[in-house]
Simulated assay, not measured.
Amino acid sequence: MADSLGVRAFFIKGPASVIQGLRMPRTSSDVDVFVHPSDLEAIVAGLRERGWRERPVDPDGRTFPKHSVTVDHPKWPCCIDVHFRFPGMETAPSDCFDVMWARTENLELAGQELRVPTESLGIVILALHALRSAHLPACRQELEFLRDLTEREQHVAAVMDLAVATGSLAAMRPFLEGLLPGRETVEWPDASGEWRNRLMAKQPGSARLIAIAQAPLREKPGMIFHAVFPAPVVHLSRDIYADMTLPGRVRSHRTRWVRFLRSAPQVMRDLSQLRKG
């Protein structure tokens, strides 16, 4: 479809990463594709014409900044996640795409000739993805695997250059510091507010409270109201089959509050980091 539309698209993570040796074998639950921001609507429209539908999303863009559009199909057992930017990459999304596109290569998969990241770009993408949740054992394991690979295959310089070109040097710092020669000095930029918030918010409830705390005073009442009384689409963003009748919505509200209360200790720890910052 991308070829027929003349859209540049390359596929990230997933089975291609396993074939390239960038990841341990695993089962993928979705397909991740990257397109230029100006081509996002064309791709989504093309998928829509073929029976794919956009999944509901939380409309609160301050709390959950958007970086992709997810679509599903009633006859396919997986989603497609169409990326137009990548968290941690602070260069303008259009420029960032051009940098990445220049570092893609062909790979045959499922009977198709696909564009996928080169090894060095694949390492950057996978490392950024794992760094967002580095508190999880699986992500720590993946980061260690990528560090060993980067050093063994001598990708450190290429990964460093990509981190600079994509504006991800600040986000990649925990991954890169141990790989650089001891004599090399780097001027590490400060991480963006969005990236710091992503790292602090280990629970969805934390993300909302952090966003409310950082919002201008005039916006806080509305954000608090929508956090306490979310729109129906918020329930659907978690479960597209959620019961939207009045009793069903009441049950969803109850489940949401139970989930929040159970995560309260972690939420408090996340908020304590905000106070320190």
Rank of each mutant, 00 (worst) to 15 (best):
A231W: 06
P265L: 07
A242P: 00
T27L: 15
Q141A: 14
H83G: 06
L22F: 07
D72I: 02
R8K: 14
L40M: 06
L121E: 02
A213E: 04
P137D: 07
R147F: 01
A171V: 04
W188M: 05
P232Y: 10
G167I: 01
H235Y: 15
L176T: 05
F145N: 11
W76G: 02
A211I: 02
R50H: 12
W195E: 03
P137W: 00
V7N: 01
R152K: 14
E153C: 11
S94A: 15
M223S: 09
I80K: 04
M223I: 11
V82F: 07
G182E: 15
S272C: 11
V250A: 15
D148H: 14
L236I: 08
E105I: 12
W52G: 13
H73M: 07
E142G: 11
C96F: 01
F64A: 03
A170D: 06
R53E: 15
G21A: 11
S120Q: 03
L162M: 09
L121V: 07
G178C: 07
R238W: 03
L107F: 04
R238S: 09
H235R: 08
V186Y: 10
V7Y: 00
I125C: 02
D161S: 14
A158N: 09
C96Y: 02
D190I: 07
V124Y: 09
E113Y: 12
R53H: 12
L5K: 08
E184C: 02
K276N: 10
Q141S: 13
T245M: 08
K276H: 12
P232W: 06
H226G: 00
L209Y: 05
M89W: 03
E108P: 01
H135F: 09
V44F: 03
I210P: 01
D95K: 14
L131S: 12
C79T: 13
W101S: 04
R256L: 13
K66E: 14
P59E: 05
A213Q: 08
W101V: 05
A2V: 02
L114I: 08
I210W: 00
L121N: 14
A207S: 13
L40T: 12
Q273K: 12
K66W: 10
A231D: 13
K75M: 12
D30K: 06
I43H: 08
A138G: 09
A9E: 08
C79A: 13
D81P: 01
A264H: 04
K66I: 06
A16Y: 06
M268P: 00
S168V: 00
G6F: 00
P74K: 08
A165I: 06
R147I: 10
G277I: 05
